[in-house]
Design a protein around this nucleic acid. Structure first.
Length: 264
DNA sequence: CGCGTTTGACCAGCGC
DNA sequence: GCGCTGGTCAAACGCG
């Protein structure tokens, strides 16, 4: 692919015997050498980008396979490796053991929210109003876990647990249980938090695997929650590559074509 | 004064 | 039964 982007810079210049033409030819040859060198550098950069892209695609395939295996193995509570909400109701199968609340069908969702390094709070602004009712240090994580109840609507059964990730303390892991019986506060959803990343999605590495992290405060995140994870990743990668390519107008067309060929 | 947060105590489930 | 752990309660406290 990188080879295809290389331009043939060798020219059969018919040099004129005149001195003036010699100087002009030398300048041209020099310019061609410079462009050739630049071509080479850009080709190498493109090659590296393609390698990274291929590596990411392979990772993605593995993640999707692992995710599907997990889903088949444990259909009642599934944490998506992409950090995008994945809900399963535990009422899908009859309760074999006596349950304290047989009629309740709590749904469990998990989000990863990237915060700034200086931000030590355990608050995730998601458009709802929460009341903290407890905090506990758990065994598997040195950072405390905060317990929240939805206080916006009376009788709303939703609970939320927020804890920092063991792998990356900048990432908050928010676990939601149950379903809201009301709509989110519009004004709260519109508020942008200074404590959170300006980007709606950030890459995170949990357990050695890349994980997509959603910034729930970002206005575009609500829509992203319902997007297909693979489409999102592909779209972001192509966007990033395309923006890099646009810096050099000479290669934009050739590289964009190559990328499109690669992604299809 | 009302509301939300903090924090130690308490309770229930689970494994040994 | 005992100890560990996660989850919840509720009194104390702080803030507007």
């Amino acid at each position: 692919m990188a080879e295809s982007a290389c331009l043939d810079t060798s020219l059969n210049l018919n040099l004129s015997p005149s001195r003036h033409m010699d100087v002009a030819a030398e300048m041209l040859v020099e310019e061609l050498h410079r462009l050739s060198s630049e071509n080479k550098k850009l080709s190498e950069r493109l090659s590296r980008m393609c390698e990274s892209y291929n590596a990411l695609q392979n990772h993605l395939r593995e993640l999707v396979l692992v995710d599907e295996r997990k889903r088949k193995a444990a259909p009642h509570h599934h944490e998506s490796v992409f950090g995008i909400r994945n809900e399963c109701s535990i009422s899908e199968e009859p309760c074999k053991k006596p349950c304290r609340e047989i009629t309740t069908t709590p749904k469990v969702s998990k989000y990863f929210v990237r915060t700034q390094q200086s931000d030590n709070s355990l608050y995730v602004k998601d458009g709802y109003q929460w009341r903290k009712y407890g905090q506990k240090v758990t065994r598997d994580n040195p950072s405390p876990r905060a317990y929240f109840r939805c206080s916006f609507a009376p009788g709303c059964p939703v609970k939320k647990k927020v804890q920092r990730s063991v792998q990356d303390p900048r990432v908050l892991v928010a676990t939601y249980e149950g379903e809201h019986n009301h709509s989110p506060r519009a004004e709260a959803a519109a508020v942008s938090s200074s404590s959170l990343s300006p980007l709606p999605i950030a890459m995170d590495r949990t357990a050695g695997l890349p994980t997509l992290t959603l910034d729930l405060v970002h206005p575009s995140s609500a829509g992203l929650l319902h997007q297909n994870a693979q489409n999102t990743i592909n779209h972001l990668l192509v966007q990033k590559m395309a923006s890099s390519l646009t810096r050099d107008p000479n290669f934009t067309a050739a590289l964009a074509t190559a990328i499109l060929d690669h992604t299809t």
